[in-house]
Amino acid sequence: MTHAQKTAHATTTVISAKPVILPAPARGEDLQVRVSAPATGSDLPVIVLSHGFGWSMNGYAPLADYWAAHGFAVLQPTHLDSRTLGIPAEDPRTPRIWRFRIEDLTRVLDGLDVLEAAVPGLGGRLDRSRIAVAGHSWGAQTASTLLGARVLDSDGVPGEDLSDPRIKAGVLLALTGLGDDLTPFAAENLPFMKPSFDTMTTPALIVAGDGDDSALSTRGPDWFTDPYTHSPGSKSLLTLFGAEHSLGGIPGYEVAETTDESPARVALIQQLTSAFLRSALHPEDTAWQKAAVALEEDPNPLGKLQSK
């Protein structure tokens, strides 16, 4: 266990700064980022968290606060689709927002010096060799490209490789599946939702709800297991029983779009994602192995795990 992990168990005090501004002239809006970290501890691994459609750096407190309290520095950019920015649908950037989102994540990684300096007391405490990416829904699609997923063009040819070697692990929550199963509306209006997971080689935990029946797919909830099924090894799949798209409420507490509110389910996600990332970024750490055993032995489990 590292010094940062020992410290995380001793305190839950989190420090946070927002907005930290990263200049982005070609984007049309400078990038706003929230930075959260434990108040003490060194060698903090980093998680870049990509929000779902319409959200912002202010969302996902159940994840960001928990991860920060357990020894991670959490960086949350506000993407151009955020309701806080109010960009209209007819904005000329709209068709490329999916690419701007990916560029937002790489800009965060490129701007670690600025982000670290913006939080009093954070300087010199980040472990830049241990960086993970996480995302929910559209954020998971964004994050998956940095892990090696590719977007297929209209002829089924994989597009540009946007993977980032700085990323060592990922957590993909409610990540949509293959483009073969899109509804006509999604196929016409969301052309970037045609992924190939064949080259998504970076270790990742994929979280899917078996009650997540998307209006974007002609299939049922098993669509969300495609990223696990169709990607190479070093992957784990957590299937949550009864969970819908918000997976119990990870975007926030008591938010309107959560249709399956479950504090217990959110707590399980908090514990398992933290354990997975700790072990993925620190191979000597046994947290993930212990968490997997605990879930398997639970007489009333909230989900099941598979690994390959």
Rank of each mutant, 00 (worst) to 15 (best):
K6D: 10
T286D: 15
H282Q: 12
I269Q: 03
L75A: 02
D212C: 02
I15W: 02
S36W: 00
A208P: 00
T40K: 14
E244S: 15
D155L: 09
M57R: 14
R34V: 08
K308G: 14
T225F: 03
I167L: 05
I250N: 06
G111K: 06
P232M: 02
D110S: 11
L146Q: 05
L122P: 02
L31T: 11
L44V: 04
D155M: 06
F72A: 00
N300T: 09
D181M: 06
S231N: 00
T229A: 14
L112H: 03
E244H: 15
W288E: 10
K290T: 15
S144N: 07
L109G: 05
W138K: 14
D161M: 11
M1I: 13
R125Y: 03
A117N: 05
K6V: 12
L205E: 05
T199C: 10
E254L: 14
P283Q: 10
F241L: 09
T145A: 13
G233Y: 08
S129G: 14
W55P: 04
T286R: 15
I47T: 01
E29H: 15
D198I: 11
I87T: 10
K194W: 10
M193L: 15
D43T: 09
G135M: 06
V20Q: 00
A73D: 01
A275N: 11
L85S: 07
R150V: 08
D198F: 13
G111D: 04
R130Q: 07
H3F: 08
S246W: 07
H3V: 12
P195K: 09
G170E: 12
P221R: 04
A37P: 05
L238P: 05
E188I: 10
G135E: 06
I269F: 05
T176H: 13
K194I: 07
V20N: 02
G111Q: 02
K235L: 08
G111P: 06
D113A: 11
V35A: 10
A204W: 03
T84K: 13
W98V: 13
A39G: 13
D210G: 03
G211Y: 08
A264C: 01
L49H: 10
R101L: 06
E90M: 09
D153V: 04
G121D: 01
Q271P: 03
V46S: 01
M193T: 13
W98R: 12
P221K: 04
L172V: 07
P95A: 08
A68T: 00
V114N: 05
A26D: 14
A256H: 14
G135Y: 04
P23H: 03
V133N: 05
Q32H: 14
L295A: 05
R128Q: 07
T12Y: 03
G209M: 01
G156D: 05
A291I: 11
W98Y: 14
Q271W: 08
L85I: 10
L109D: 03
V151W: 14
D213G: 07
A204D: 04
L295I: 08
T239S: 13
L182V: 09
A186Q: 12
